[in-house]
Design a protein around this nucleic acid. Structure first.
Length: 302
DNA sequence: AGCCAGGCAGAGA
DNA sequence: TCTCTGCATGGC
């Protein structure tokens, strides 16, 4: 029988479901009206309750600063929205995604996850990461009656796992890239603390030194884990959205669209990017539990 | 059955 | 600098 620790945070206007299920993190699972996951080697359950957020964990949480930081609760969403350019696509995306926060994830897990994401659907990425964690991650304390839970595997561990064994988690050709990244981080050759002190272009180049990490994956790591809110990852969905929403009758090259995305969306461009990404996927019916008919979101405050 | 998925690297023009 | 292709695997 295990003890649990509980806290309640006031967060007006948050949208926990959008935040945890918008494709920026891959390990949160909806269960019994809440969301369960493992962050910082802890089992955590989050439940949206009106204008507050209830959190439960299995180890002494201290002052919960780690969770507040992960959820970026210090960010003022209205102030962020106010930095967006005034245009119809973003006005619409804000309406749909209001309450979605860009998380501050653990850099190693974020890097590894997005290395595994290339040419994979989100459901498959989640599956690969689930298998990888169960095989190589340390088991963490979960409440009685819950499924076994595992931390995301440490770089030191994965650096010692053979490519063949990694492929047993169904990651295919990405195994070589994952191993190389694990070795770089475990050896200290890639030091996130150092990278995050660099200007965005320099930080991006450092990440892109890794095999299997190009512009898009590097930008995901910069945005979702290293605090570069201006980073604007352009994947196939966002590329399509930029074409259709901002250049409906032109034929801009990918390079032109990339350049546009760098300056147009401002210093919280990464938020704008995630709002565009999530809203087009909601509309396309590609988010679990949501149809293409604009089915009700689980946002807590209207 | 065939196409595509939160890309990237290497080759050839 | 550009376009094209192979890459593992699975969902639809």
């Amino acid at each position: 029988m295990s003890t649990t620790f509980e806290a309640t945070f006031p967060i007006p206007g948050h949208d926990l479901a959008a935040t945890l299920d918008c494709g920026q993190a891959f390990r949160w699972e909806a269960r019994d009206g809440g969301w369960e996951g493992v962050i910082f080697g802890r089992w955590v359950r989050l439940v949206a309750r009106g204008t507050t957020l209830q959190a439960i964990t299995t180890r002494d949480p201290g002052d919960w600063a780690w969770l507040r930081d992960y959820l970026a609760l210090d960010e003022d969403l209205a102030a962020i929205h106010a930095t967006f350019p005034l245009d119809l696509p973003l006005a619409d995306a804000i309406l749909v995604c209001r309450g979605l926060r860009v998380l501050r994830q653990e850099p190693w897990e974020c890097l590894a996850s997005f290395i595994l994401s290339s040419t994979k659907q989100i459901v498959q990425i989640r599956q690969i990461i689930r298998q990888l964690s169960a095989r190589h991650g340390a088991e963490v304390l979960a409440p009685a009656g819950c499924e076994r839970a595992y931390a995301f595997p440490a770089p030191e561990v994965l650096a010692e796992v053979s490519e063949v064994e990694l492929r047993e988690s169904k990651m295919g050709f990405r195994a070589r890239y994952l191993r190389a990244a694990a070795e770089a981080v475990a050896s200290g050759r890639l030091d996130f603390a150092r990278v995050r002190r660099e200007a965005l272009p320099v930080a991006r180049e450092e990440l892109m030194l890794l095999p299997g990490v190009g512009r898009k994956i590097a930008d995901c790591v910069l945005l979702f884990s290293l605090g570069y809110t201006r980073a604007f990852p352009v994947d196939v969905w966002v590329m399509k959205a930029l074409r259709e929403l901002y250049f409906p009758r032109g034929q801009p090259s990918p390079a032109r669209l990339l350049a546009f995305s760098e300056h147009y969306f401002g210093r919280y461009g990464g938020y704008a990017q995630q709002y565009l990404f999530h809203s087009i996927r909601l509309r396309a019916g590609r988010v679990a539990g949501k149809g293409a008919d604009g089915a009700s979101s689980s946002r807590d405050v209207p």
